[in-house]
Amino acid sequence: MGQDAAPDQEDWVPPDGSWASSAARRRNMQAIRSRDTEPERVIRRLVHARGLRYRVAAKPIPDLRRTADLVFRPVKVAVFIDGCYWHGCPEHYVSPKTNSGYWSDKVKGNMARDQDTNQRLTEAGWTVLRFWEHESPDGCALKITQTVTRLRARRN
């Protein structure tokens, strides 16, 4: 193997203390998207088709280092479409078999951050809508549309 050649993925060994327990797990974890997931894209398309415009993956409030999946700034609505695994869905979350301590702690941290985000946004006058990735996209789009439309009417 030359100096510039990369080692085979199967020969890759995680460094001590790494979250990646194998080369296959590392590839899998690197492939997971944090934005523009399929559920997000479907819901955005449906909301857009209903005539609503929004910001994508934006910070609702500048000093909060967190982004919402859809942001309607004029009416202060932040929408989050949460993945069942990463956000601890009560219906679908299954604790991992390998490295379970690390991943369970990671998910618990995500859940605590979600609650903190909800509280901070609510205190700042925002309406927070959270949906699970398994929920009906049509139902999510309808709820988003109804909420934004109601808040727009209230402003006028």
Rank of each mutant, 00 (worst) to 15 (best):
S136A: 03
V71P: 06
P7R: 11
D105R: 11
A5Y: 04
H48W: 10
S136Q: 09
R65S: 03
S22H: 06
E135D: 14
D11C: 12
L52G: 12
G109S: 02
P14S: 02
Q30Y: 00
W12A: 00
F131I: 07
D8F: 09
G17W: 08
I43W: 13
N99K: 01
E133I: 07
Q9V: 07
K97G: 01
S95W: 03
T147H: 12
R66N: 04
R53F: 06
A58T: 05
D8C: 03
D63A: 03
V42C: 06
P62R: 09
S18R: 02
R26D: 00
C89G: 12
E38P: 14
A57E: 11
G17E: 09
W126F: 14
E133L: 09
M1H: 11
A78S: 07
E40L: 12
D82Q: 12
P14C: 02
D138F: 04
Q3V: 10
S95H: 00
Q115D: 09
S21C: 14
A58W: 15
W126M: 13
W86I: 06
F72I: 02
A31Q: 14
K59H: 13
G101Q: 11
F80C: 06
M29W: 03
M1K: 14
L46T: 05
I61K: 07
K106G: 01
I61F: 08
S22Y: 04
H48N: 10
L64A: 05
I81P: 02
R55A: 09
R120H: 04
L52D: 10
G109W: 04
L142H: 15
F131E: 02
Y93S: 01
R154A: 12
V148P: 12
H134W: 11
L129Y: 14
W132F: 05
R33V: 05
R65G: 11
R73T: 14
K108S: 00
V77W: 04
G139S: 15
I81V: 08
E38F: 13
S21W: 10
R44Q: 12
K97C: 00
A141F: 12
L46S: 02
W19D: 00
V75D: 02
A68F: 07
D36R: 08
A20W: 01
S21K: 04
V148Y: 11
P60H: 10
H134N: 07
E133R: 08
L52E: 12
K97T: 12
R65A: 06
M111C: 05
A5H: 11
R154E: 14
R26M: 05
L121W: 06
S21D: 05
R27D: 13
R27W: 06
P74D: 10
D4R: 11
R44E: 11
R45D: 04
P96Y: 01
A153F: 10
A78N: 12
P7D: 08
A124Q: 05
R73E: 03
A6N: 13
N156Q: 04
I61W: 04
R55P: 04
T122V: 05
R152L: 08
T145S: 07
S18Q: 01
T127G: 15
G109F: 00
P90T: 08
T149Q: 07
G139L: 05
V107I: 03
R35Q: 12
L52A: 07
R120D: 10
R27L: 15
